[in-house]
Design a protein around this nucleic acid. Structure first.
Lengths: 339, 339
DNA sequence: CTGTTAGCGCATTCAC
DNA sequence: GTGAATGCGCTAACAG
């Protein structure tokens, strides 16, 4: 069906071993012969059989992308970035999704399906427990985490504590002292989660204000708008005197804004709101936030994985850039729609 | 490193051929032996080598997912659906992205990279020209299209003309007669594109109103908010008397709403706006739209591909459900935020 | 610099 | 029902 190395070898009047060497551009082939073979192979439309190559070398040139969702801003972008970063180096990306809902736990990771199939694994925004990490490690291929990390493996992400601090400093500077927090999920089980880092940033800022640390000003939620709305109503029912709400993500923050609107409160005037992410919608609704670039993080995690597979040392953490974006929701700016 | 068929065979006291048969559950193995081997293989942690299996059978149990982006609502959801649909049948999904921008054309499809790597191809939301389709067909594996289709291949999608008609009927029912249209890209080259179908729906409705067909009431754009904004300003500068704007997608429609807001026009009161998609944000901004379910379309396209790979006939088109969702932007409902 | 040989791990004849 | 032999297409080790 397809032409094989042998076909090319026959046509070139050399052995298949030489063709193999020539096509891999090994230095041990006479330059002229090499060029001749490469040209011929191209003309014949020869394409290597990845399976045969893998069988012979043990290398698949494929990496596994493990992720809970693809239909969310953060995840879609890191996946896109990672795929791009891998493709550039001629690696294939195998996609594995593990749907999480607040109601039913996601399916557990079964690393068996990755066996002999990938040269490395990128764990994108997935919270794995120790047991899962251990079984992943059994695959004996490099692993890079993105987002919720692991203390023993290279983790790409942002300084979540720092991001929260940026927001809190901004709100405090505007005169706010009673600042509620809508936290993300997984804070109890995973102290390394972004949610936990952002929560600590909020808590630390509250403490430094010499205010009593009031965890009653906090609600834990999953990452969706509806959760943000629910949490806001609960929070304001209990503490109507809050003047600002810092949500762990923009999506939650937008839920907050909707809830405030339902209660007849004017965002940015009656009460300040801020999030983290700077996703597209943030600009539209005028949300103050901390910008991060998940696409760049995806590319970066791919690069680190390739390094690790090349046997190089990789740093334990790699933090992407963040930047405070001030918009109308925190009350400094009064126009609703900006560009 | 891993245990092989031979290892299991040795431990079971049978030949590797028998193990191979037993693990594939072929009927030609004595039931008792079969169970014994399956149990043993499981205990030994045996995992098949996909490459070796592929080399022997020619089947990769992998399909290629070709898509322009993953970081957009429609694409993220079809990818998620397709991956899920494939995983359920133990197929792997290989992700290939082809970034498109209005400025630089995307890289052309080079099907060579898919050679010997996939048993089938899902073309998700990608506009391929005839040459690309021809080279894809050379791979000699089944192909299913999702979104912009191809007249010779099974295409999953929605009735774009019908969706536009739903919107137009709704607007006309509300009394509108001067309805502008913000169309999507690729209408010229590809008459099979969703953009083209929606445009025809708009045009046909305009005609049936016995209005002069006025293509001056139309602007062609790429699928992003900024385009929608730009187009709106252009449209209203030229035709300030329009009372409604129908945008080809929600994202464009949201751009329209932003532009109207900039011009001091009140959406739903001064001017009606409608889109197509019903993405998450549509609810938040109160956008009237036609709901479609890209996730279900992704699952469906995976099912059809699996059928095709099994040698079954597949219908030329498979249309997903659509439904008109009336919200404040078309002026019927006056509250801004609903649930 | 190049060819020969052997083997990666499986599925498939063809015997028995 | 089961086993032995062969080949899928490539790379690696060893000669030369």
């Amino acid at each position: 069906m397809y032409s094989s190395l042998d076909d090319v070898a026959r046509a070139a009047g050399v052995s298949s071993a030489t063709v193999s060497r020539a096509l891999r551009d090994l230095p041990s082939v006479k330059p002229e012969t090499k060029r001749r073979i490469q040209k011929l192979a191209h003309e014949m439309g020869y394409v290597i059989s990845p399976s045969a190559s893998n069988l012979a070398t043990g290398k698949t040139r494929t990496i596994g992308l493990l992720t809970p969702w693809v239909n969310r801003w953060f995840f879609a972008n890191i996946i896109e970035g990672a795929e791009k970063g891998l493709r550039q180096h001629n690696y294939d990306a195998l996609l594995y999704t593990f749907h999480e809902t607040p109601f039913e736990p996601r399916q557990r990771l079964d690393p068996q399906v990755l066996r002999r199939r990938v040269d490395g694994v990128l764990v994108l925004g997935l919270q794995l427990d120790d047991e899962e990490v251990a079984s992943l490690a059994n695959l004996d291929v490099p692993i890079i985490f993105l987002g919720p990390g692991h203390s023993k493996y290279t983790t790409v992400g942002i300084d979540d504590f720092g991001a929260a601090t940026l927001i809190m400093n901004h709100l405090v500077e505007l005169g706010h002292t009673k600042i509620g927090h809508i936290a993300g999920p997984d804070m109890e089980q995973f102290t390394n989660s972004p949610s936990a880092g952002r929560y600590r940033g909020w808590r630390s800022a509250v403490q430094s204000l010499d205010l009593p640390v009031d965890d009653a000003w906090r609600r834990d939620q999953s990452f969706d708008q509806a959760s943000g709305m629910r949490a806001t109503h609960g929070l304001l029912d209990a503490h109507p005197d809050l003047t600002a709400i810092f949500a762990a993500t923009d999506t939650l923050a937008i839920g907050v804004m909707r809830a405030l609107s339902q209660r007849g409160l004017k965002v940015g005037t009656d009460i300040a709101v801020a999030g983290i992410d700077d996703e597209e919608t943030a600009k539209y609704v005028g949300l103050t936030t901390v910008r991060q670039d998940p696409r760049a993080q995806g590319v970066r995690s791919a690069q680190l994985l390739l390094s690790a597979m090349a046997g190089e040392e990789t740093p334990l953490t790699d933090l992407g850039e963040i930047e405070l974006i001030e918009r109308a929701s925190s009350g400094r700016i009064s126009v609703r729609f900006m560009d």
